[in-house]
Write a protein that binds this DNA or RNA. Sequence first.
DNA 1: CAATAGAGCGCT
DNA 2: AAAGCGCTCTATTG
Length: 648
Amino acid sequence: MRVPYIVLDTDHLHAVVEYVSRFGAFAFDTETTPPYRAVPALNTVTWISLATYGMAVVIPMGHEKGDKVIGSRKEPYLTPTGLTRHRTVYEWEPAPPQLRPSQVFEALEPLMFSDRLKICRNAPFDLGSIAKYYDGRPPAKPYFDTFLNSVLQDENRLNGLKHRVKSIYGHIYDKEDVGKKVETHCFSTVARYAYLDAKYTWLLWKRERDACAAEGLSGVLALEHDVIDTVLEMILNGAPVDGDVLADLGVQLDERLVHYEAEIYRLVGRQFNLNSSKQKAEVFYTPKKDGGLGLKPAALTKGGKKKWAKGEELTVHDFSTDADALKPHSDHPVIKLMLDYQRDQKLKGTYVTGILGDPEQDKPCLIVNGRIHGSFKQVGARTGRWSSAEPNLQNIPSRGEEGKKIRAAYRAEPGYKLVVADYGQIELVVLAHFIGQGALFDGFHKGIDPHTMTAALVFGVSVEDVTKEMRSVAKGLNFAIVYGAGPRTVAEMAGVRLDEAKKHMATHRKMFPEVYAYKAYVIEEARATPDCHTRTILGRKRRLPDLRSRDEEKRAAAERQIFNAKIQGSATGDLIKLAMVRLIALLPDEAELIMTVHDELVVHTPEEHVPLVEAALREAMLGDGIQRLVRVPLTSDQSVVDRWSDAK
DNA sequence: CAATAGAGCGCT
DNA sequence: AAAGCGCTCTATTG
């Protein structure tokens, strides 16, 4: 039977293209298969669906599984425990003959490279995935991303297509998560699913395209749409990594881990799982007379705190074994070894095995052709910050001897350099900008480091007489402002006693009254709006209904969050994104933007273009078009390095 | 057996 | 009473 919405031949395909080309906008969606299904640079597109006024179709291009089972057999397999079991394997009829990707993408080229509006949900994924069929060129602008549009309207809800469709139309159309593994589902199921994805993307565009404008969010939406180009740059380029460096480090870490493990077992007198916080707590906190080390617990776990608040009985398992809790006992030989073990285990598991993969654990290697194609999510954080995953390139170690060795594996290819640029104190700059006066503001205008400035006022000395210790306290105090930290955190950070921290915080409040007044103002202003929101420098909204919670703890948390969101969202949400959009326009073709780490940008470039790239970064990050938004001078640090670890 | 929660930890 | 993330490992739950 011919299903009119499934395109299986060239006549139908050309009729579809002809129809779509009558209009100025269309939606499309892709379904992809392994290897690297979730990586646009590497995956294979096996379905593309299109929707426009009065029409939606789906085009399969190599889906194998048909609709009917035509046989079955029993197949033996080994369980992880080494037992042989049998499972039933079904044989499916083949799917109907389909068009080849080359035919489909050739026919779609006039649409994809026209000035028609391309509407997607998660545009970077779809645009990036089909770029490989056009010599690496993503479809041409303009784009509209209904996911960005949804998130900007409400960052607190679930914004996946399924969730929005269910909430708006009451239609639940994907109970099985078909898109997660299309090749395992039968032909008709995927056809229907892919068709509905495009159709609903189209309908949501029609329904909600103007919703952002109604909330004063057009500017941010336009910025986020421009940012799509920068996402495509990063995810398609990938970050160059030397897998051999990681492999060597892995061997070294393994040797040490084996040593720590043996020593700990010997000293404790028995074996236990060193990765289990439950077992560690038993060993460390059980009294000596009962066979434990009898250490005095320093802190509770999150769950332990809850139990304590409810007045429930605590067990050893409610006491934390994290590094902070163990530190006071670091003179104990077992704890000393344990801290080393925990550190190296983290590095090995997350940053060596996690990247190189492990066939035994069925983990893939993330380095392909010398590059890691992570996924960057432009609205990954509710503040508007970027997030990064698979792998997370924003938490590659930077401190410590071993950590630096890991970061050293991220390096320029031969004949190339990394140009690394980061904003100086961007969050405090933004804070001073918003306040528009006071010591911090004046200090920035005089080119004085904000922590030094704070120290001078809090300790009553001149800027020249600020010591390292004073600056460290001041750093903690500034940290406390932006994050809403309390005296305990400040004391911990600055390495001073609790009463001293309290005293310094009181002095800070006296010397920087405008900071506290501003903070209170932001919170009250937000609380007075119907949806309890504040706005960032470019107008992005952060809504925190808990500002009106009767629960004091929740309310206080919301107050910290909303103030932090205004600062964090402006600095590492809005400004870095604007700088990235500006940068893309200025970079020479041969240079590649490969990463952003909140206030830092990393560009990979042929050596001969280094001066050009440095100038482009300066102009993008500090030039008039961005500086005029901020009443405080912006600054940046730039390094030209071979290895990422060498950037200052 | 797979999915989820909790602890813990890497980064800005 | 420390903001925002994502990943790994264990232990528990369905």
